[in-house]
Design a protein around this nucleic acid. Sequence first.
DNA 1: TAAATATCTTAGTATAATACTAACATTATG
DNA 2: CATAATGTTAGTATTATACTAAGATATTTA
Lengths: 136, 136
Amino acid sequence: MSKTKGITKRERDCLLVIGEDIKNGFPDRLVNLSRKLQVSSPTVMNLLDRLDQKGLIRRLEGMVTLTDLGMQTYGELMESHRVIEYIFYKNGIPEDECCKEASKIDYIIEQDVISRLFMNLGKPSTCPHGRRIRGD
Amino acid sequence: MSKTKGITKRERDCLLVIGEDIKNGFPDRLVNLSRKLQVSSPTVMNLLDRLDQKGLIRRLEGMVTLTDLGMQTYGELMESHRVIEYIFYKNGIPEDECCKEASKIDYIIEQDVISRLFMNLGKPSTCPHGRRIRGD
DNA sequence: TAAATATCTTAGTATAATACTAACATTATG
DNA sequence: CATAATGTTAGTATTATACTAAGATATTTA
């Protein structure tokens, strides 16, 4: 019953930026994403087209928002990232490296495996940086 | 000082089969790899060419062997795989899923992170399957 | 040894992900 | 309205993956 996020590395990067900025009340537009992801606008275009096709984002007057599915996927990515960070941190890896390594794999690991790890780790409420793992 | 393995997923798959079979005393030839990796021979060709370019394998009369570098990389992959498996298993993930998930990321995580995890986990000598983590 | 079989290799094609430049369109803003 | 900012298309490139068709080389066996 495992469930993959079904996204690629760059789609993940993009989704995280979008989600983060929505939370902060500054929804992205293409230019921001281009700057934040450090790629040209056509590359972002391409990325957004794919996220769109996958039903994860919506574009309203240049504003990029997350669909319900996108929101859910964003949440799963956050959870995955933090659970992995937490495990690494707990096992002696320095904070910044935890994040770097977690970023490489958080979109790959099956979500139900992450969920079970989360359970078995005692549902830790914070990641190494002190941010909450679930919710926000 | 982090160090990546510098290989792709399929190169990893291929390298593991080659290393495994060498250990068992049955060095692979292209046909075997084609069968074991479930891809056509030209695809294996391509794969071997790349592993060759990276200095990981050598081809002698159809026999595929690992170079010193290839042997080292194989060892690192094994270590990574088992350390990851071990962590998952220790945290409540069933054996077969540990292996499945580990296979997706063992070639991605920096080797020095793996080494530190290995240390901090108390240098466990076996993986979930009872095989040794280091050496072999 | 000649034919058959197995194995290897080349050539050509295809797709997906990533990323670029150049050019054009649209929308704000001064 | 003109300029600047932003978005979009079109076209190209690379890397990884993988295929089929066809030819080359061995090896085996009748």
